[in-house]
């Protein structure tokens, strides 16, 4: 902290004012929508002012439905292409409900991008394991696409994906393409399936012992419910992956996205600024305590 004697609040305030208002959003227009599953929709948005939004894989925006409210939503689009802003949204509340119901032409307000990214390129020269469950595939998709743009720079790449039922599997066509054409081992499992389901039933953690990777030379990117991420981190540690090489994307209540509102604090961390992507090394002592 600046010592009290040196502190010049007027300078700091002037600097802050010049930096602009992080709470003021930009209007975006819904261009296309796609119903991914029963409760999940992908929105493609274009900025009304025409200036595209640059982001890193893993970052999120604060997405606002006028008169309803604002929620943090991870970007699910391709970070290597300048184009439409893409969000894959699950209908779980009033704001997300309004967002998935937004028809083409609807104006939404966007702030961001905010937060830390996956930094998947740290895995170049080694193996990369993506592990995800449920809607967690959406925040990982930009990292997968970033990797695929330079597939030859990575060794073995695996995507382990758990969904509730076969009907809840996201991006099914893309999963097949990644597996068949792009050299990714894609393993999918569901919590339970109908009689007609010919695939695997079980927990995504059970896939971890089944795939080949070099634990000392692997970056593992994990995104899903906290319980799932903890179980995956434990299984990865069990295979010898260092805690510092395991990255998780944390979810917390967020009202500002820029470290001001205080809602997303996890002990000393502001998840919106220090995260959402953090190493298991950093998170392990915090995730194992109830209601922290």
């Amino acid at each position: 902290m600046t010592s009290l004697a040196e502190h010049d609040h007027a300078d700091a305030a002037a600097h802050a004012l010049a930096a602009g208002d992080a709470m003021l959003p930009r209007p975006y227009r819904v261009v296309r929508t796609r119903q991914d599953t029963r409760d999940t929709v992908t929105l493609q948005l274009e900025p009304v002012d025409g200036v595209p939004l640059k982001f890193s894989a893993g970052q999120f925006t604060m997405l606002h439905a006028f008169g309803v409210g604002e929620v943090p939503i991870s970007i699910s689009g391709d970070p290597t292409k300048e184009g439409l802003l893409e969000h894959t949204i699950r209908n779980v509340g009033s704001v997300s409900g309004a967002l998935v119901a937004a028809a083409p032409g609807t104006i939404l307000a966007v702030r961001g991008p905010f937060g830390t990214g996956w930094d998947v390129s740290d895995g170049m020269g080694g193996d990369v394991v993506f592990i995800t469950g449920g809607i967690g595939l959406a925040p990982l998709r930009p990292a997968i696409l970033e990797l695929l743009a330079n597939r030859e720079k990575y060794n073995r790449v695996a995507l382990l994906y758990g969904a509730r039922t076969p009907d809840d599997i996201l991006f099914g066509d893309e999963l097949r393409k990644w597996a068949d054409l792009l050299g990714i081992v894609v393993e999918v499992t569901v919590d339970s399936g109908p009689h007609s389901w010919r695939g695997r039933v079980g927990l995504v953690t059970q896939l971890i012992p089944r795939i080949a990777f070099d634990p000392a030379n692997t970056v593992a990117l994990v995104c899903g419910p906290e319980v799932m991420m903890r179980a995956c981190a434990t299984a990865l540690r069990g295979r010898g992956v260092p805690a510092a090489s395991i990255r998780l994307s944390m979810e917390r209540n967020m009202k500002c996205g820029v470290g001001l509102c205080g809602h997303c604090q996890l002990r000393e961390l502001f998840i919106c600024v220090d995260g959402p992507v953090l190493t298991y090394e950093r998170l392990a002592p915090l995730m194992s305590r109830w209601e922290l």
Binding site: A19, C256, G259, L260, V273
Partner: peptide, 16 residues
């Protein structure tokens, strides 16, 4: 001042 002015983003209303 430190929290609302001197970090990643500022509260512009407080700043003013």
């Amino acid at each position: 001042d430190q929290i609302l002015l001197e970090r990643t983003a500022a509260d512009v209303h407080y700043a003013a």
